[in-house]
């Protein structure tokens, strides 16, 4: 059996010392450190604001730019008279793979509209953000384009959005006053049916 001798590379003097190589690796780190330190100090004095200091987004003062197609918290589109565009077709409830949408439909007084949702709940704790509800909606009544990503809450109840939050993305639970006039069931009213169409439709003149 022949013996093969393998020559292993010899470390140089500086390499044998270890510390200089560690410093060599840290060169990149220190370069970033001092660059950012310099830029942050400059930003404090209002200089060099066109250059980003670090790649970190200073959330929540600074939000990361989102693409428009990113699926974020849902919203229900609203018609001119304040009623939701949704006609309660229940296609989103049917297609939702997580079964997180609950809708109860009812009769709308305008025979050209005919149907609207009395209750529209989305349980964000269950939602998987697939976006099927947006794709399937025939009325462009629901979108996931609010750009709102902070849906955290302190209870499971607070993760369940109803008509208020969905029609007005600015709202967070607990919602103090129910501002919706048309008949609906919401958390503020304890799930009871409240409201009427008279006030909402009075604002709109129907062409005969």
């Amino acid at each position: 059996m022949a013996v093969k001798v393998v020559q292993r590379p010899q470390l140089t003097f500086w390499e044998k010392l270890y510390i200089p190589q560690i410093l060599c690796g840290l060169r990149i780190t220190f370069r970033h450190f001092f660059r950012n330190l310099f830029l942050h100090i400059a930003h404090r004095f209002g200089r060099k604001t066109d250059v980003r200091a670090g790649v970190t987004y200073q959330y929540p003062e600074e939000l990361r730019p989102l693409f428009s197609r990113l699926r974020t918290r849902h919203r229900l589109m609203v018609r001119g008279n304040g009623a939701p565009r949704c006609v309660g077709c229940m296609l989103c409830e049917t297609v939702c793979p997580a079964k997180c949408i609950t809708i109860v439909p009812a009769e709308h007084p305008d025979p050209d509209v005919e149907k609207f949702p009395v209750r529209f709940d989305i349980n964000l704790g269950v939602c998987v953000y697939c976006g099927y509800c947006v794709e399937v909606c025939p009325e462009d009544a629901i979108r996931m384009d609010t750009g709102i990503l902070d849906i955290a809450a302190t209870s499971r109840e607070a993760m369940k959005l109803d008509l208020h939050e969905l029609m007005n993305p600015e709202l967070r639970k607990p919602v103090a006053a129910c501002g919706l006039d048309f008949p609906h069931q919401c958390g503020v009213h304890g799930g009871e049916l409240r409201g009427s169409w008279e006030e909402t439709l009075a604002a709109l003149t129907h062409p005969e």
Partner: peptide, 9 residues
């Protein structure tokens, strides 16, 4: 185009 609001769907 009533399919969304029509019970026959």
């Amino acid at each position: 185009l009533d399919c969304p609001v029509c019970d026959q769907a």
